[in-house]
Design a protein around this nucleic acid. Structure first.
Lengths: 349, 349
DNA sequence: AAGCGCCACCCAATCGATTGGGTAAGTGTG
DNA sequence: CACACTTACCCAATCGATTGGGTGGCGCTT
């Protein structure tokens, strides 16, 4: 029965003040001091009357007016490559939860991983006077981040990291290592990597973690076994086709579940059975992985926690604290797509 | 090099006015009147100087102050079941595009299809003083919509419809009909429906469209052939299990691609091959459908357009116009999962 | 009884932009 | 030359909440 918001005319501080016969500033102080004693502002009795009436009338302060005075909007801007990417959508769920708990609201915008669009969306957010930004689409080597620093815009990175900036990410290097160990231990010696976009730290770190660990185990892998690709299903399919046109690995590591699904499709159309002829491992363990016709092995990254952590880091940045990068630990979940030992340990040339 | 936004101290109207030696109100009028002649407000020469300086200083009006005065925030609230549902995420992309073109910014929140959460999120949005709402999670028979109407909150529905409210949806009945015709024509006579959540108009309409058309073609189908389920992969799997425990249809229609994928998994673990032993058709034609190992037949709903349409309808509501429901036409895309003629037209009892 | 302090408030400026209502200078008309 | 009218501006109130700086009145002290 509240009457604030879009349609109705909201209750204002002054309305309450008039009805109570006191000054608006007193009402403000009472409502503002969260402690039950409005220290020095009003008597306990008055304070109670104020709170009572505020509740009854469904008073909620006008964020416009409040923000105008305090220069803080309680808004956080979130920029992601695209929300229709399940990974980012899930991280955003974490952001929303955490932000709501702290009384912040969040804007999200899709940049489609396009630098011009990243700039445009950033500018829109700043024009809205967000208190800070969460950037989920950082491109390595882009000039945007130093520029934001120069403009003193408070921000943190999420999902992808970049040297020298606070970020909340998965420990992608570790994730890649886990996959390398798993495939090595199941007897594979002949593997390829579907590596993702080379401008994303996620792709680079996962690939590097895999390759480095693979070599340290004594495995062989060179640049031609690593194929860069888009993160989506079609990208994974194309990458797998490119790989299969040249050689036949016994295992594929795709740095993204969707790319892995695309690769599974390509394998099937080459007459290969996933999990028997070729092992496939994905990354992120999206809700789809376990439910696929052939359940997909995948590295589970704590997506919700990454989102939540990003908000917490941003809080600290806003308080002026020094903040470093946080990397959350992933775990490997082995399923049918890579459970069997390698059929032909010698590999195929 | 703009200096507005989170970190820097923004340029204000007054700053410009002082630098130009004129009154802030004059600056405001010049910048406000979009026509190149600031009619009556200033001379052409002054107007040009003002616009020039505004550009140079990177002036952008403070939305807080502007909104305080004009009582319009330029904010739209969007409530969806969850953004990690690819369907809603894609609709949101459409919303974002369209809203940005019109100078609006959008909030999204997840309600998780929980009535209490729907209320909470709605209240948060109204407390933020959004100009209007786009509701993507309407529950049939919920009391929330009449209440919003009573509070004079401008809103439109998206994705799901409800009698008597403006909405932008897919023509789900037609979509169900297309599937019925397709399966009938490929020789199937023994079908089951994975119907989705009974509180969602999407589920109900798609199912009803299918069932009614099926009957009108002479087919038999009764209530036990229709299984309600969650929209996600696990829900689809469970529903398929329930169906297979009782009978063996030659075709399954799932009202959602993710449920269809789950069903494909269940079929496989029963030793049935999708597309050969059992046909499967999904709904929405998400980007995944065509790329699955066994490509999934699906009804393509114009998700981006639905989002865009929702924004346009809301614009009209905000202008006080009368607005009715819009239903966009879907198209069926047949793929390997249901391309073959029914293996056993007589069906299996 | 004069003095002091504190309690419980009130006053007014302020944030940045909008907008109805002036007003002085300049132009044209009869 | 006086009057009306337009041009090109300025003035000040306003939106709703916050906040530094008062100020009466009461109680207590010595």
């Amino acid at each position: 029965m509240k009457d604030n918001g879009a349609g109705g005319q909201a209750v204002t501080l002054k309305d309450l003040a008039v009805e109570l016969g006191i000054h608006p500033s007193t009402v403000s102080r009472v409502l503002h001091s969260s402690s039950d004693v409005a220290k020095g502002a009003a008597s306990a009795a008055t304070a109670e009357r104020v709170r009572e009436l505020a509740r009854k009338r469904g008073y909620s302060p006008d964020p416009q007016a409040m923000g105008l005075r305090t220069r803080r909007t309680g808004l956080l801007g979130v920029i992601v490559p695209r929300l229709s990417d399940l990974v980012l959508a899930t991280m955003y769920e974490g952001i929303e939860q955490s932000a709501a708990e702290l009384g912040f609201s969040t804007f999200v915008m899709n940049s489609l991983d396009d630098p011009a669009e990243q700039r445009r969306k950033t500018d829109i957010m700043l024009a809205r006077r967000v208190d800070g930004l969460i950037i989920g689409d950082a491109h390595l080597g882009s000039g945007l981040l130093p520029e934001l620093t120069a403009r003193k815009v408070p921000f943190v990175l999420m999902n992808r990291r970049a040297q020298g900036y606070p970020s909340a990410t998965c420990d992608d290097v570790l994730g890649g290592e886990l996959v390398a160990e798993h495939l090595w231990n199941t007897g594979h010696r002949n593997v390829s990597v579907i590596a993702g976009e080379p401008y994303a730290s996620t792709a680079i770190d996962r690939t590097a973690g895999f390759v480095d660990r693979w070599k340290s185990l004594g495995g062989e892998i060179d640049d031609t076994d690593v194929v860069w690709s888009r993160f989506d299903t079609a990208g994974g399919r194309e990458a797998a086709e490119a790989i299969l046109s040249k050689r036949r690995p016994t295992a594929l590591f795709a740095v993204n579940d969707f790319a892995a699904i695309g690769a599974m499709g390509a394998l099937r159309s080459h007459g290969l059975t996933v999990g028997k002829d070729v092992a496939v491992v994905g990354f992120n363990d999206t809700s789809l992985a376990a439910e696929l016709p052939i359940p997909l092995s995948s590295v589970r990254s704590p997506m919700l926690d990454i989102g939540r952590t990003a908000v917490q880091l941003l809080q600290r940045v806003l308080r002026g604290e020094d903040v470093e990068a946080v990397r959350l630990k992933p775990t490997l979940h082995v399923r049918e797509s890579s459970a069997q030992a390698c059929p032909d340990p010698s590999g195929t040339p």
